Amino acid sequence: MPGWIEKIVGDLGDKKRYLAYRERVKRLPDGYRDAAKALERYLMNLGPTDDGKGLVTMLEDLADLLEQSAADGAPLRDVVGADPADFAETFMANYDGGSWVRKERARLAESIDRAEREQEAGS
Rank of each mutant, 00 (worst) to 15 (best):
P84G: 06
R33I: 05
E116G: 12
R27I: 01
L46E: 13
D78F: 10
F91Q: 01
V80F: 11
R41S: 12
P29G: 10
I8K: 12
A35G: 03
V9Y: 13
L76F: 04
R17W: 04
R102M: 00
P48K: 06
R114Y: 11
W4V: 02
A63Y: 06
Y42N: 09
R22Y: 03
V56L: 07
V79C: 04
E110H: 04
T57W: 08
V101E: 11
T90I: 02
E23K: 13
A82E: 15
A71E: 13
R117D: 13
Y42V: 09
L108R: 10
P2L: 13
L66R: 02
R24C: 03
R22G: 01
E6L: 01
I8R: 13
D72E: 15
V80N: 00
K26D: 14
R114E: 14
L46A: 08
M58I: 08
D50M: 03
R114T: 13
G81Q: 03
D83G: 00
E118A: 14
D86V: 05
L39F: 10
R107M: 05
M1I: 00
V25F: 09
R22C: 10
V56Y: 05
L55H: 01
L108Q: 06
A20I: 05
K7Y: 05
D64H: 08
Y18M: 13
M1E: 03
